[in-house]
Amino acid sequence: MDETLQIPDVVTVGEAMALLMARQPLPLAEVSEFERATAGAELNVAVGLSRLGYKVGYVSALGKDSLGRNLLDFMQAEGLDLRHVRLDQQHPTGFMLKSMALDGSDPEVEYFRRGSAASHLSRADIPSGAYQRARLLHLTGISPALSDSCRDMALTMAAQARGAGRMVTFDPNLRPRLWPTQEAMIETVNALASLADVVMPGLGEGKLLTGCGDAAGIADFYLARGARQVVVKLGPQGAYYAGPEGRGIAPGVPVRKVVDTVGAGDGFAVGVISALLEGLPLALAAARGNAVGARVVQFRGDCEGLPTRSELGLQ
């Protein structure tokens, strides 16, 4: 096969996890019935971009167990390029539990990922060849939190892609429980953000990471440190965007009923990244991010609400 036909549009790296969603609106300790789905911030973005017609290469590791097999089947069905998903016989596939929240609030979440297969990813797993020629690399602040070797891998991939002139997008996606200290989290996440072309923090995340009190200050912080474009997620109020084309607010998209907030930020990233790949201005990219995020919160699973092009009203 011609090597150029194997080049993905987008490459991302992260941990795919089995998701066990409560089928009863009770505290997790009292739930007896769960439904299996899939989770993982980078996996959500990969699936979302694949549904919009992009070729997506996913870099990860799964345990050679039933959870890993189920995830692999799901990713294959979604059309992801899995050449660099490694099966690990020594370490298990991570999983998480999620409660059912009927009032639209953030559900209770518990992770079981310490020592997982993906936490043993390292610089040795960085792909070469076609993956090094992808148009865009997407990273989050979750992968570097999994282990020292994962942190080294993420920073190396970001530096390589930025140095080669490829676009790098970054979602801080803070998970404080995965980090040894808040200081370590802030230092590493901001180091990765400084290697990205596009940084997409939430307002609360941005305040913690930068010490700035508003979206404009957060954007200034990252623009001064190397980012070319910044989009700050404002929840139902929309998103603040800043870059060479100017600044502004893309209004939020009204939602009749919020079912599950988990995965909304990943959906937002799908909208922004897909629009930028199509050459649209940042204002329209932020608006598409709002549209996809608003759709995702109306479904229970992390991936279930990610739209196809026709569902998003695109040709």
Results as ranks from 00 to 15, higher is better:
Glu3Trp: 04
Leu5Cys: 04
Gln6Ile: 07
Asp9Pro: 01
Val10Phe: 01
Val13Ile: 15
Ala16Met: 09
Leu19Asn: 06
Ala22Pro: 08
Ala22Asp: 08
Arg23His: 05
Gln24His: 08
Pro25Arg: 14
Leu26Phe: 07
Leu28Tyr: 04
Glu35Pro: 01
Arg36Ser: 10
Thr38Gly: 01
Thr38Val: 14
Ala39Gln: 04
Glu42Cys: 09
Leu43Glu: 00
Asn44Leu: 07
Asn44His: 08
Gly48Val: 10
Ser50Leu: 04
Lys55Arg: 15
Ser60Cys: 07
Ala61Met: 09
Gly63Ala: 10
Asp65Lys: 11
Ser66Val: 14
Ser66Cys: 04
Leu67Glu: 04
Leu67Ala: 08
Gly68Asp: 03
Asn70Val: 12
Leu71Ala: 06
Leu72Arg: 12
Leu72Lys: 10
Phe74Gln: 05
Ala77Asn: 06
Asp81Thr: 08
Val85Lys: 05
Arg86Gln: 08
Asp88Leu: 11
Gln90Arg: 14
Gly94Asp: 06
Phe95Trp: 14
Leu97Gln: 02
Leu97Asp: 02
Met100Trp: 13
Ala101Thr: 13
Ala101Tyr: 03
Leu102Val: 15
Leu102Glu: 15
Glu108Tyr: 03
Glu110Thr: 15
Glu110Cys: 09
Phe112His: 15
Ala118Asp: 00
Ser122Lys: 06
Ser122Leu: 08
Arg123Glu: 13
Asp125Gly: 04
Asp125Cys: 04
Ser128Phe: 00
Gly129Thr: 10
Ala130Arg: 13
Arg133Asn: 06
Arg135Pro: 00
Arg135Asn: 10
Leu137Lys: 06
Gly141Ala: 07
Leu146Pro: 00
Asp148Cys: 01
Asp152Glu: 15
Thr156His: 06
Thr156Ser: 11
Ala158Val: 14
Gln160Arg: 15
Gln160Lys: 12
Gln160Tyr: 03
Ala161Thr: 10
Arg166Gln: 15
Met167Glu: 02
Val168Thr: 06
Thr169Asn: 01
Asp171His: 05
Asn173Met: 05
Leu174Pro: 00
Leu174Asp: 01
Pro176Gly: 12
Pro180Ser: 11
Pro180Tyr: 10
Thr181Glu: 03
Glu183Pro: 00
Val189Pro: 00
Ala191Lys: 14
Leu195Ser: 04
Pro201Tyr: 07
Leu203Ser: 07
Gly204Gln: 14
Lys207Phe: 05
Leu208Trp: 04
Gly211Arg: 14
Ala215Pro: 00
Ala216Lys: 15
Ala216Ile: 11
Asp220Cys: 09
Ala224Asn: 08
Ala224Tyr: 01
Gly226Trp: 08
Arg228Asn: 12
Gln229Ser: 13
Gln229His: 14
Val230Leu: 07
Val231Pro: 01
Val231Asp: 02
Val232Leu: 08
Lys233Gly: 02
Lys233Phe: 10
Lys233Ile: 13
Leu234Arg: 07
Leu234Ala: 03
Gln237Thr: 10
Gly243Asp: 05
Pro244Leu: 11
Gly246Phe: 14
Gly248Ala: 12
Gly248Asp: 07
Gly248Ser: 11
Val253Leu: 07
Val259Leu: 09
Gly265Pro: 04
Asp266Gly: 08
Ala269Val: 13
Ala269Leu: 06
Val270Gly: 04
Gly271Glu: 06
Ile273Met: 06
Leu277His: 03
Pro281Phe: 09
Arg295Asn: 08
Val296Lys: 03
Gln298Cys: 13
Glu304Ser: 09
Glu304Phe: 02
Gly305Thr: 11
Gly305Phe: 05
Pro307Val: 15
Gly313Pro: 11
Gly313Trp: 13
